[in-house]
């Protein structure tokens, strides 16, 4: 069962890599060129992922706060007695 799943996964990955290499035209390039392009792609993608993981949560929080600040000034007073959650207050 596990073996079959593993084979299926490997097939899917091989298929995906084949399409990636065909679309980027690296399927017909020399191995060295392919290596370089793959490295560049990996670096760029990992940087993007890193940036997403590190900066995205903070950024989203900041945006939310900004949103709350813009829309929630009036509703702040209403919610004092009710002790409602922020999201409920905003809506």
């Amino acid at each position: 069962m596990l073996q079959r799943l593993w084979r299926h996964l490997a097939d899917t990955l091989r298929h995906a890599y084949f399409h990636y290499s065909v679309i980027l035209c690296i399927a017909i390039l020399e191995p060295a060129e392919r290596y370089v392009i793959n490295s560049v792609v990996i670096v760029v993608v990992s940087l993007l992922v890193y940036a997403t993981v590190v900066y995205m949560p903070g950024h989203v929080t900041m945006l939310c706060q900004c949103f709350v600040h813009l829309t929630g000034i009036r509703s702040h007073g209403d919610s004092v007695g009710q002790r409602g959650t922020t999201s409920a207050t905003i809506s």
Binding site: I23, L24, C25, I26, L29, E33, V36, I37
Partner: peptide, 17 residues
């Protein structure tokens, strides 16, 4: 778009070579 991207990449590699 993907075709242009492929050509652009090949041209870039060609210039490097």
């Amino acid at each position: 778009i993907l075709t242009y991207l492929g050509y652009a990449l090949m041209v870039f590699i060609g210039h490097v070579r």
